[in-house]
Design a protein around this nucleic acid. Structure first.
Length: 671
DNA sequence: GGGTTGCAAACAGAG
DNA sequence: TTTGCAACCC
């Protein structure tokens, strides 16, 4: 095919309203002003990656690119939202029209538009990881694999296998051989189960996260009309956090940019921390080879952290193998020496963090300039209690999500069958709430519902069992009343929540708290236009638990941030605490038998450290309390070779009335 | 047969 | 805090 490029009268730099030259360094400016063709921006931590993307969005719009023809792909929805908001502030509201979001979001919107081309209706629903696992579990029990008591992999393992195979584009047998040799004897059964899983998803009009990417890729690959239609609207494509994209996403970028070829990817290979999800930082190394005439721009000056924090980061990275050589430097002064805090117990660690935060707040620091970072969601539990006691408001990112809690899933299942009556797993959940109904009866009822003219008002004639006939009538009534208020998402949700109240009471000891959660959920559900969009948004961007909690509280002080390191990616704070830096936590105990995985844990630790602008505390408890008992623990191996001149040891001393003279460099704890 | 209940065991990271 | 499994009731 021939291509004719329509030229446009570019604005001259002088006519821009934004003084780009003053706001950006030369490398950033080059990236922002780049006209057309592929570009790779290799950007170290804190070198103004976000700033560059933000200004580029504004610049493109100023130069006359229709904002609706710009696609900004980011790692989280929040990141896209914040960047476009910033762009809007420096330019104007046109920036809101830019398409921004994650790969999953964008693919989902493409698929809704073209669902018929791939044999789906447009009301397909999205399975989150837990839903997918339930489907797998259901199919597994149907297939009934049992053989001499040999262990068949758990549903979560099966899910990782299926998902890994898709995202890395490796066949299942090969993947088993490489990563799960202990399950190789089950290869045939696992492959068979995967086939059933695929069949299930097409039969029941559901897609999992991976399907959003795969189906979009397949659609664009197999249907040239659609590919042209989609990619001709993507005049400029920007991809953030490119080091954490996988093979499949790489292919998508190629398809999206196939008409215009204007694609800028931005990333930092040493911040690649998502290989467990199939991310391959070699995408970055490959990029210049895949795209001919690709320009490479490096951002190296760090604008975030003081040099003492960078010294620690650089020192740590010296241990990393397989990376681009890169030394971060900054002009922000030396700053204070990062501290390595040894606490006696987990609770002492929490008291230290809490008291430091209180002290900083006293000195005028804002809580939202401070973050506490950790490896696993549960590593902050003790601290959360301590913060609550001291009435310090916080928001937590990562870990268990609000929408993953059992009571929320119960309620959502009702909405899901309402939108997509073929969703068997949700029906099962709905039915199994009823007294006397287990998996077997639930499947029977599902069949009855499917064979009825309206599955939401199933034909109950054939049901002889009086015991649940009444309950099923109540359920049918619920769906009928929901239909009546269709259009008001909050009202529909409220009906479900009221219906659910008695089940909640029966199922949970802490039912008042759970009901309060659900009521808050009703309150915030007004922001979703339709039930379908509520379900979609929630699957692709689950609500954090603390959002629901803080919605209820009246405190308007900007809160402290607690976050897993993974969720803290791309963000920065004046002060950061990294807690639970124990060997076995970071690096995670799961990673110890593979060198590649330990390297990834090291990069993760690097990401954590480079979140801090001014002050950094790394802490660990000397005695670690696990559910199984207490044991003495060793600080992270990554700290082994760090000299005290780079990371200063702190010790915590209990305040005592007859000893007021504390030595220099020591800090005290008070009750 | 099918549903419920109680106990032992394991527990990442996220779209 | 959830999940798998075995023993126990309708």
């Amino acid at each position: 095919m021939k291509k004719f490029v329509l030229s446009r009268d570019e604005n001259s730099p002088e006519s821009f309203t934004i003084p780009y030259k003053e706001k950006l360094n030369s490398a950033q400016l080059e990236a922002v002003m780049h006209q057309s063709g592929p570009v790779l921006v290799a950007a170290g931590a804190g070198t103004g990656k976000t700033r560059t993307l933000t200004y580029r969005v504004a610049r493109l719009i100023e130069s006359g690119t229709d904002p609706a023809n710009i696609l900004l792909l980011t790692f989280t929805r929040r990141a896209a939202f914040e960047m476009l908001q910033r762009a809007g502030e420096i330019l104007d509201q046109r920036c809101r029209l830019v398409k921004g979001g994650t790969f999953h979001h964008y693919c989902s919107s493409v698929l809704r538009k073209h669902s018929n081309e791939i044999g789906y209706p447009d009301n397909f629903t999205i399975l989150d990881a837990a839903d997918s696992m339930q489907v797998i579990q259901f199919l597994r029990s149907q297939l009934n694999f049992k053989k001499g008591g040999k262990r068949f992999p758990q549903k979560s393992t099966l899910y990782s296998i299926f998902s890994g195979s898709v995202n890395r584009q490796i066949e299942i047998p090969k993947l088993l051989e490489n990563e799960y040799p202990q399950f190789m004897e089950w290869t045939d059964q696992i492959v068979q189960l995967n086939d059933h899983y695929h069949q299930y998803k097409t039969d029941h009009f559901v897609m999992d996260f991976d399907d959003l990417l795969v189906n979009t890729r397949n659609l664009l690959q197999n249907n040239d009309n659609v590919r042209q239609q989609v990619s001709s609207k993507l005049v400029q494509i920007l991809v953030d956090e490119y080091q954490d994209t996988n093979r499949l996403q790489d292919e998508l970028v190629q398809l999206f940019s196939s008409v215009h070829g204007n694609v800028m990817v931005v990333g930092d290979d040493v911040q690649s921390i998502y290989s467990f999800r199939g991310a391959d930082h070699k995408n970055m190394l490959r990029f210049p080879k895949t795209y001919q005439n690709c320009k490479v721009i490096k951002l190296e000056e760090n604008y975030r952290s003081t040099s003492r924090i960078l010294d620690l980061a650089n020192k740590l990275l010296a241990e990393a193998t397989d990376k681009f050589e890169k030394d971060l430097y900054s002009d922000l002064g030396k700053g204070s020496l990062p501290g390595l805090v040894k606490a006696a117990t987990v609770n002492d660690q929490s008291r230290f963090v809490t008291q430091m935060i209180l002290q900083m707040r006293e000195e005028g620091k804002e809580l939202n300039d401070i973050a506490v970072l950790f490896r696993n969601g549960r590593d902050s539990f003790d601290l959360e209690v301590e913060l609550n006691n001291k009435k310090i408001p916080f928001r937590k990112f990562g870990g268990q999500k609000f929408t993953e809690a059992a009571h929320v899933k119960d309620v959502l299942s009702h909405l899901r069958v309402f939108v997509n009556p073929k969703d068997l797993i949700s029906w099962n959940r709905v039915f199994m709430l009823l007294e006397g109904i287990g998996p077997k009866t639930a499947s029977e009822l599902f069949k009855i519902a499917q064979n009825s003219t309206n599955p939401l008002q199933p034909d109950l004639e054939s049901i002889t069992n009086e015991r649940y006939r009444e309950q099923l009538k109540a359920l049918a009534t619920l769906f009928r009343t929901m239909k009546n208020v269709e259009g008001s998402v909050s009202e529909m949700l409220e009906l479900v929540v009221e219906y659910y109240r008695s089940f909640c009471k029966k199922r949970f000891d802490d039912y008042p708290k759970r009901m309060r959660d659900l009521e808050t959920f009703v309150d915030i559900s007004g922001r979703y236009g339709t039930v379908q969009s509520l379900l979609e948004e929630i699957a692709l961007d689950p609500i954090e638990s603390t959002v629901i909690d803080s919605e209820a509280s009246e405190n308007d002080e900007a809160p402290l941030t607690l976050s897993t390191i993974h969720s803290a990616k791309g963000l920065e704070w004046d002060t950061a605490f990294i807690i639970q830096c124990l060997d076995g936590i970071i690096p995670s105990g799961y990673s110890l038998d593979s060198d590649d995985q330990i390297q990834e844990e090291l990069r993760l630790f690097y990401v954590a450290i480079t979140r801090a602008k001014n002050q950094l505390f790394i802490s660990y408890p000397a005695l670690y309390q696990s559910y199984y008992g207490d044991y003495f623990s060793k600080p992270s191996r990554f700290l082994d070779n760090i000299p005290e001149s780079i990371l200063e040891p702190w010790m915590l001393v209990e305040e005592s009335h007859n000893d007021n003279q504390l030595e220099e460099g020591k800090n005290k704890l008070t009750e």
